[in-house]
């Protein structure tokens, strides 16, 4: 499934957030949206997920305007994981993951639904928690369950808002490798919001760097993550090197005049 975002502009009431964002994602591709807090990453992903409607511009899925697609058909093609935040609902882990099968279920739950659920739970490593209430899990465990829900949906396009943020390093790697496997083997398109620049660079085909709601840079990670762009967008001085394991970003310090304690400037 190919996604094209054309000149999307969005505002919450009068608060303009996205300004003319355009990008394209091919199938089998992993694209990470990066940028500072409040730069509009989640807003862009919400527009992609049809949660928000752009003020101007349009988004196309395989050439069709997404707002024109039938809801059920849409739900079978696109899975969305919102940014983690509070909403814990009183159901069991199994019920939460089963929810991902909603677009495939008419009324009865079929064996293939349960198979998809089991697979998804195994992939995120939550199969042992099936009976537990979602509200009693740790933040990372819950995130894995919600990710499993999106996977159980078996969509062609995955939209993930910070899927690895509260996971430990083992699970970060496992989830990201799983996503890459899905992209490479099954041609899924993955668009995710990331904060961890090194992981984003390593696991993404393309990065989209947002600054104040506009694309500052987009393309291959080594092109986007430059010393200059990190300084301009994040206000951080960093070292970027091409190491043995690919691109390595080491943030050093805020650029002079930012975020220091009462002018006690050590530089």
């Amino acid at each position: 499934m190919k996604i094209v975002v054309r000149d999307v502009t969005f505002a919450y009431n009068s608060h303009a957030v996205l300004h003319g964002v355009s990008l394209g994602v091919a199938e089998g591709e992993i694209v990470s949206i990066i940028g500072p807090n409040g730069s509009g990453k989640s807003t862009l992903l919400r527009c992609l997920a049809r949660v928000l409607q752009p003020r101007r511009g349009a988004i196309f899925l395989d050439g069709r305007e997404i707002l024109a697609i039938d809801a059920r058909q849409w739900a079978r093609q696109v899975g969305y994981l919102p940014q983690a935040g509070g909403t814990s609902f009183p159901i069991t882990v199994l019920e939460a993951v089963l929810m991902g099968r909603k677009p495939h279920i008419r009324w009865g739950v079929m064996p293939r639904d349960l198979e998809a659920v089991e697979r998804a739970m195994r992939y995120t490593g939550v199969e042992e928690m099936a009976r537990r209430p979602l509200g009693e899990l740790s933040g990372g465990e819950r995130q894995k369950v919600l990710l499993a829900r999106a996977l159980a949906q078996e969509p062609e396009v995955l939209l993930l808002d910070e899927p690895t943020t509260s996971l430990d390093i083992l699970h970060q790697l496992e989830i990201l490798e799983l996503l890459r496997q899905l992209a490479v083997e099954q041609g899924k398109a993955v668009i995710m919001v990331m904060h961890e620049l090194n992981l984003a660079a390593r696991f993404s085909d393309k990065l989209v760097l947002l600054k104040d709601g506009s694309i500052f840079a987009a393309g291959r990670p080594e092109k986007v993550l430059s010393v200059a762009s990190l300084k301009a967008v994040y206000g951080v001085e960093a070292v970027v090197s091409e190491g043995r394991f690919g691109l390595e970003v080491l943030p050093l310090r805020p650029v002079a005049g930012r975020g220091t304690l009462g002018g006690d400037d050590t530089t």
Partner: peptide, 18 residues
Amino acid sequence: WDVNALLAGEEVAGSLGV
């Protein structure tokens, strides 16, 4: 089923076709 999905929040329910 739709109300079940609504438990996951309006955004997610919407993305599940509700």
